[in-house]
Amino acid sequence: TQPAQEDRPGIEVAAHKRKKGGRKPLDPALPREVVRYELPADQLVCAQDGSMLVGIGVEVSEQLDIIPQQIRVIRHERVKYACKRCDHGLKVAPVPLRIIPKGLFTEAALAWIILSKFMDALPLYRIAALLRRFGGDISRNTLAACVIRIGEAVQPVINLMRDVLLDSAVTQGDETNIQVLKEPGRAAQSKSAVWVQMNALDPPVRLFSYAAGHHVEHGDALWAGMRAGAVLMSDGGAVYDLIAKKNGLVHLGCWSHVRRGFVEAQEVLPKEAHGMHQPATQFLHLIGKLYAAEARAREAPQRCMRLRRRYSRVVLGQIKALLDQHL
């Protein structure tokens, strides 16, 4: 459910505009192949006076075409050289640098495997099945070994991304359950976690780290090294209170998570009981004002801090008063 934007002097909500109908145009940046259709010569005669017809323009329509994936083999031939007079002049052209030395896949193929697994969420056995369909009989174990080797190869880049994240003034954190079927010393039913971190840059740095659980000892090291006084924003979980305190960070909650609880509270009320007399509705009304202010701030970033001081601070005071009233 999207937060309502409350109308208020100085906080104008844009009027609803109906979108025009019709098909969305295709991306102009896509490569285009022009197929031209012309009338045969025997139809280029005017039926009225017998004059020859001339072109006056074209009618254009576009379709999206997809070129099926193809598998090919790159054959590397390194020329060898030798001296005609002795046995000491043997030379061979150097092999190009590769992410995986003597690896089976080109860098482009490796990129396709990684994107398929992590962006398209395809398990390795499905990627192997796709490759077989196109003519490549590659085992899942080979694919898994390549994924591990790529992970090791890009670790220096990940380290640099972490340096940028730890130097940021604002970071966001969350963690989600993940099941690991085969892990030494742990049952398959054990709950592991992927800890996600992001900063407020454009584009942001996003880091995903595996840990054996959701407790502070599993996530504390991820924020170690952040400059004191930096902001850590979370869903309000108690573990982030401990992480922020240990690393000298300011812990902020997420308004979206706050609002979600009041939405759920309002949904269980009978329809006849809805109204501004309900605490949940009152909280949603005030939180909606904060969202409206932020929407206005995005339109005029130079006035963002002034808007927050003069308007949002007052709304936050009203929210606190309402909290104290119902404590």
Rank of each mutant, 00 (worst) to 15 (best):
D163S: 03
Q197C: 02
R309I: 14
G136P: 02
D241T: 12
K80S: 14
A111H: 02
K80F: 01
H215F: 13
H277E: 11
I138K: 04
L104A: 11
I158Q: 09
S190C: 08
R8Q: 10
P28A: 00
V73T: 14
K19F: 08
V34S: 01
H215K: 08
Y37T: 02
L110N: 06
E175D: 12
C46M: 14
A93N: 01
D49G: 05
K245D: 04
Q325M: 12
A273F: 02
E272V: 01
A47I: 03
L53T: 08
R206M: 15
D235I: 12
Q172P: 00
L327C: 08
L286I: 14
Q48Y: 07
A193Y: 15
G135R: 09
I138F: 10
L143C: 13
L26W: 03
Y311L: 13
E107H: 15
N141W: 08
R227H: 12
I178Q: 07
D163G: 08
V45E: 05
A224K: 13
L90I: 07
V58P: 00
Q282D: 12
G288N: 15
K17D: 00
K84H: 15
C46A: 10
K320W: 05
Y125H: 04
Y240G: 12
A297Q: 00
L269M: 05
I138Y: 04
Q189N: 10
Q302C: 13
E299D: 07
V164H: 11
L165F: 09
G185Y: 04
P156Q: 05
K80G: 13
A200M: 07
A292R: 14
I71M: 12
I113S: 04
Y37P: 00
A47D: 11
C304V: 05
Q2E: 15
A265R: 03
D42C: 03
A228T: 15
Q48C: 07
I287N: 14
R313W: 09
A29S: 13
A295R: 12
G185D: 13
E264H: 00
L232W: 02
V205E: 07
H326G: 01
D220A: 13
H76D: 07
I127C: 00
D202I: 12
D167R: 10
K20Y: 06
L64P: 02
V263I: 12
V92T: 11
I148N: 11
Q5H: 14
V268M: 03
I148A: 11
L290R: 15
R140A: 01
L97W: 04
F134T: 09
A238K: 14
L322Y: 08
M233W: 05
I158C: 03
L110Y: 05
F105N: 06
P156S: 05
